[in-house]
Simulated assay, not measured.
Amino acid sequence: MTADEADPDSIERGEPRRPDERLGLITGIVVGAVVVALAVVTGFTASWYVGDRDRDQLDAQYVDAARRGVLNVISVSADRADSDVDRILEGSTGEFRADFAGRSKDFIDVVKQMKVTSKGTVNAVGIETSDEHAASLLVSATSLVTNGSGAQEEPRVWRLRVHLQHGDDDRILIEKVDFAV
């Protein structure tokens, strides 16, 4: 029997007629498996990259919200105490908002009576924990305080733990502020 002649038994079993046909079939299967594996790896890598990028963007939003919120709290002026309080309340929620709102009239009265001016600077912000709904950050800040009692741009150092959460309108708001040791 020559190489070109078919063996009737091999045809019935579905076997290739020549060894080089078998090699081509195996090569095709291997190449297909490699292509599928590369596609799966590429898909996982892309999803990790997008997830990391989204997480980095959210963490940057948390840092910005903590920075802005702390500046609002430590930067006040007797000339604009009412609007300063409104700005603080607008950027807050939960326990912090309830506590501050309850004391806001007294706060305004003291700031105006003592002729307080405080200019704040945030020195550093670090994320302690964060997820897609809330975060806890450590904030180091300094304010220069001038008041009617004789303080002339006296520095006040602040070490704060700021708890943030997403509000109903998806804004990031201060929920709680603690003094950090």
Rank of each mutant, 00 (worst) to 15 (best):
A3T: 11
D4Y: 04
P8Y: 01
R13N: 13
G14M: 07
P19S: 13
R22I: 10
G24Y: 07
L25V: 08
V31K: 03
V35P: 06
V40Y: 10
S47V: 13
Y49P: 12
D52N: 15
R55C: 10
D56M: 05
Q57E: 14
Q61F: 02
D64H: 11
R68D: 12
G69N: 00
G69Y: 04
V73L: 10
S75P: 02
A78E: 11
A81Y: 03
D82W: 04
S83M: 09
V85W: 02
V85T: 10
I88D: 11
L89P: 07
L89W: 05
E90T: 12
R97C: 10
D99R: 13
A101S: 12
S104W: 02
D106G: 15
I108E: 08
D109Y: 05
V110H: 07
K112C: 03
S118Y: 06
K119F: 08
T121D: 08
N123P: 05
A124C: 04
S130W: 03
D131V: 02
L137S: 04
V139E: 00
A141N: 04
A141F: 02
S143Q: 03
S149Y: 06
Q152K: 13
E154L: 10
R159Y: 11
R159F: 12
V162S: 04
H163M: 10
G167W: 01
I172M: 00
F179P: 13
F179K: 15
F179T: 15
V181W: 05
